[in-house]
Design a protein around this nucleic acid. Structure first.
Lengths: 235, 235
DNA sequence: GTCTATACCACGATAGAC
DNA sequence: GTCTATCGTGGTATAGAC
């Protein structure tokens, strides 16, 4: 009496789920560009038109794939931030906020959910994929979470103006993307996956240290450009 | 006796140059994806097959467009770095190296070359374009220059191990991309273009301050993860 | 050597039959 | 819900004119 089949290579689940699974696997392998409707439908063993029927378009399909993985992540991020805020109150530092951003992803990759082992690979793809569809979705889908984290950063870094904080957060988030996109990704993922606590702590601390430095360093005033001007003299 | 024509909307130059100009203009407007062979050849008033004949492929064409603008930039960057190194010797700081990376772009945008005014727009596109072709070209084309700058950073930051420096440079360069890709781009470009020295100094100093902070902050040791561990306790 | 006309194949999307 | 047929557009390849 096997009404719920064990997951096999080609799932016996309904068409919609089969399409989602196939698209997700192909997306992790090669990103959005290297992914055609004909490939997806062939892998999922459904008809070419099925994607358009169930999701409306290729863009909508990839957004459904992204949402299925990112929604729980964002939930955990918000949850962890809330718990840290209530427990620490005014003692909340920007390091804590950064932890609330990074730790849930590591945690989820170790859960016992269906594709948890591939989760960090998926996350790396999603955050670094060059296609406009993926980037737009990440941005808009992040808005709510980012707004919540922005407020937390504001409280942790009251000495920064709103504009300055936005500037530096752009800087710091870009830096994270740079790390993920660069050659360090594999090493990071390996450490994240294999690390038994020590590596994880060390690497997270490392990332958070660099980010905190950029978030906390005081800016020179408009008149305080001695170094720059003196260099100009040399040229 | 006008053998050298004044630049008009549709140049009377040879086919190859006309294609390059048309592709460059369209690239600045909408990026690589929003750019088709049929659009390019129509704008350049040449046959569709001309691109393939002269450049081999659409990818090769865009690489030629990129090289025409970026080669002089890299030359100036290396030149400025060399001059700073010879003048400052062991007193070279990482701020100076960063200046050698950023200032040439600002300088070139104010030169009297044909399309100098559009240069920063072009640069913004080139460094943030999501397409794989553009990114790969930028990366590989940068390798020589980046290697040279990496050595300069090594001398300016002898306390960092090679691995650590590589990690932090990825971080810092990703941050720069984040700034360029984010909503700050327009403001930056505007300041860069309009600024008469004060704004330029201030913004460059601002960027360089954040980067220097991330490059110079000491990392906690492997055992020194108190903050992190204490936070873990809370959750 | 240059340039043109044209054919080719893969893509995403859609209408309409079943 | 599912399928087939087909459309428009993309990059590319080539035969042949000049």
């Amino acid at each position: 009496m096997n009404f719920t089949d064990a997951p096999t290579r080609v799932s016996t689940a309904d068409t919609k789920t089969r399409i989602l699974d196939a698209a997700e696997a192909l997306f992790v392998s090669g990103g959005f560009d290297a992914l055609s409707m004909r490939q997806i439908t062939a892998a999922a063993q459904v008809n070419l038109a099925a994607v358009n029927y169930h999701f409306g378009s290729k863009d909508a399909l990839i957004q459904a794939v992204l949402a299925r993985q990112l929604d729980p992540l964002h939930e955990q991020r918000l949850d962890m931030l809330t718990r840290l805020e209530t427990k620490l109150g005014v003692k909340l530092q920007c390091e804590h906020v950064l932890i609330a951003m990074f730790l849930p992803a590591v945690r989820m990759s170790r859960s016992e959910a269906p594709h948890a082992d591939r989760f960090l690979q998926f996350l790396g793809r999603a955050y670094t994929d060059p296609s406009a569809v993926v980037r737009d979705f990440i941005d808009t889908h992040y808005l709510e979470v980012l707004g919540r984290f922005f407020l937390a950063f504001q409280r942790a870094l009251p000495e920064l103006s709103i504009d300055d904080l936005a500037f530096r957060l752009h800087f710091a988030m870009g830096a994270l993307s740079g790390i993920l996109a660069g050659g360090e990704t594999q090493r990071l993922l390996k450490e994240f996956t294999q690390g038994q606590g020590d590596h994880e702590s060390f690497l997270l601390t490392r990332l958070i240290t660099l980010m905190t430095a950029a978030l906390r360093v005081p800016l020179p005033g408009p008149q305080d450009t001695h170094l720059f001007d003196s260099v100009i003299q040399l040229l």
